[in-house]
Each structure stands twice: as structure tokens, then as C-alpha cells.
């Protein structure tokens, strides 16, 4: 692999780099070995601790946890996206009396911790945990979707809207028929990246006692004994991360596909950067 930051390595540099790589790998392997030996002293690798995974009920509980996680994420995504579209349309409305209040609401929602919103719905409206988790996710993500789509609409060439209005479409028709389809296609990578965030945020359901994957881990550890906490946690975390990496890969794939075929087919889209906001 060559890079503009350094010369294509010559024989000496290659040797230095190889030695560096070996030392670096040894350090990492050493660190892992140290962690493993610490764990082994705790008896983590004893067969009986991992034997619980031969039990069907453990997998049933884990499966229920995954199901609860995915169903909350799916329901929230399905509601949040249309709501985000609606909020976006209101946010860019020509009428200031609509635009400004919506803007304040969006800023408010985006500035809130998601877990606080879940907690709020849970206590103030006295709903069950599932509804609280979904409502918290919907409120936050709809606001983020609205902002992403708005950025997409603003990135369109002005001529798109002007042309729409010129052929006699109303302002609303132009938004719906001309601008939104292009904006959504153009922002697809960011929208899918936000879906990953939404999926990750379902784990906040743990805090409001929703029976998702992490809560299932806690329940099993409480029930079976804390010596099983690490094995169960390890497996559950691996499942969670694997699901998220799969969805992230889809986002990267869509991004790559979108940059080869110019999104919208009119103006070549800038290589859309997948949003890296940490939430």
C-alpha cells in the first residue's frame, strides 16, 4: 500500500516497517495474552462456564432479547422516517409561522439525550417500556432525519425548484415531486448511517428496563449466577456488534454505489460523506 504521506518504502524502510509491525503485533498479542491470563485466573475459560450455551433456554432468552431489540428498532425506523419527512417539509415551509416553531422543536429534540426522552415518555405518559423506547427513538431520529433531508434539498441546484414552479407546479407539488425524491436519494448514505445509530440506541432501552438484549444478559446473570456474566455478556456483545457491522457495511455499499451512479441523475453528487456524528 502506498500513500502520498510517505515514500514507497525502500529495502531499509521496509525492514524497519516490518520490524515495527512485528513489535507492534507482539505488543498487541502480549496485551491480549495478559487479558486472557487475567481472565483465566478468574476461571473464565472453565468449560462449565461456557457449557450454558448448550442449554436451549439460554438461547431462547438471547433470541427474545435480539427480537425485542430488532422489533423496537424496526418500529421506530418505520415511524421516524415519514415523520422526519413531514418535519422537514414544515421546517422549510414558506410560512414563517410554521417554519420557526418547527425549527425550535427540532433544535430541542436534537439537543436532548435519547435516554431522557425515553424516561420522559415512560414516566409522564405512563406507557409500557416498549412504547417508551420506540417513542424516544422516534422523536430523536425523526428530528435527525428531517435535518439530513433538509441538507439534501438545500444541496440541490436552485434550477430544480425554479423549473418545477415554472411548469406550473405549486410549491408543495415541487417539493414532493421534484425535490424530495432527489434529496432522499442523495442523502441515502447518511440516512442508512443514522439507521445504524437508531439500532445502537435501542440498547438504551436497558436503562428504562425494556427487555432487550442487554437486559436479557443482566436477567440471565442474575438468575444463573454472576460467574456466567462474562460468557453471556461476551456472546451478546458479539451478536450486537455483528448486527451493527452488517448494517454499517450496507451503508458503505450504498455510498459506493451512489457515488458511481450520480444520485438523482441530474447533477453529479459530491461524494456524500457518511455522517460521523457520534450518536
Amino acid at each position: 500500500m502506498s500513500s502520498v504521506l510517505y515514500d514507497v518504502p525502500g529495502p531499509k524502510a521496509r525492514r524497519v516497517s516490518r520490524i515495527g509491525s512485528v513489535i507492534g503485533s507482539l505488543l498487541i498479542v502480549g496485551l491480549l495474552a495478559w487479558i486472557a491470563s487475567t481472565l483465566a485466573q478468574q476461571g473464565i475459560f472453565e468449560g462449565r462456564r461456557w457449557a450454558i450455551f448448550t442449554r436451549a433456554d439460554v438461547w431462547t432468552l438471547l433470541g427474545n432479547g435480539i427480537g425485542a431489540t430488532l422489533s423496537a428498532a424496526a418500529v421506530a425506523a418505520v415511524i421516524a422516517f415519514p415523520l422526519g419527512l413531514l418535519l422537514c417539509l414544515l421546517r422549510i415551509s414558506d410560512v414563517a409561522a410554521i417554519r420557526i416553531p418547527v425549527r425550535i422543536v427540532l433544535e430541542f429534540l436534537r439537543g436532548m439525550p435519547v435516554v431522557l426522552m425515553m424516561f420522559f415518555v415512560l414516566l409522564v405518559f405512563g406507557t409500557n417500556q416498549f412504547i417508551a423506547v420506540v417513542a424516544g427513538l422516534v422523536l430523536y431520529n425523526a428530528a435527525v432525519f428531517a435535518e439530513i433531508i433538509r441538507a439534501g434539498i438545500q444541496s440541490l441546484p436552485k434550477g430544480q425548484r425554479e423549473a418545477g414552479l415554472t411548469v406550473g407546479l405549486t410549491s408543495f407539488q415541487s417539493r414532493m415531486i421534484i425535490e424530495l425524491p432527489q434529496a432522499v436519494r442523495r442523502m441515502m448514505p447518511s440516512l442508512v448511517a443514522q439507521l445504524v445509530v437508531l439500532l445502537k440506541d435501542t440498547s438504551l432501552g436497558y436503562i428504562v428496563a425494556y427487555g432487550e438484549l442487554l437486559r436479557a444478559v443482566q436477567v440471565m446473570a442474575d438468575f444463573l449466577g454472576t460467574q456466567f456474566l462474562f460468557p453471556i455478556f461476551f456472546v451478546a456483545a458479539a451478536i450486537y456488534i455483528a448486527i451493527n457491522i452488517c448494517v454499517s457495511r450496507i451503508a458503505v455499499w450504498i455510498e459506493r454505489r451512489g457515488t458511481t451512479k450520480a444520485a438523482g441523475g441530474v447533477a453529479k453528487a459530491e461524494p456524500a460523506a457518511v455522517e460521523t456524528a457520534a450518536k
Binding site: 507492534g24 498487541i28 445502537k200 440498547s203 438504551l204 442487554l214
Partner: peptide, 29 residues
Amino acid sequence: VSPVAALRGFSTAYVEILRNTPLTIAFFF
């Protein structure tokens, strides 16, 4: 972006795993 392959590999793996870990899992750990 460094020339040392082991560093590149470590950094890539770290970022990929941590970015896809729910924060609650990190806290739980």
C-alpha cells in the same frame, strides 16, 4: 495513515468495533 501495517490494522479494527458497539454495552462492560 502510518506506514506501519500493524498500527494501521490495530487502528482500523479498534474504530470499526467501537463505532458499532452500542454505548450502553461499553458502559455495561
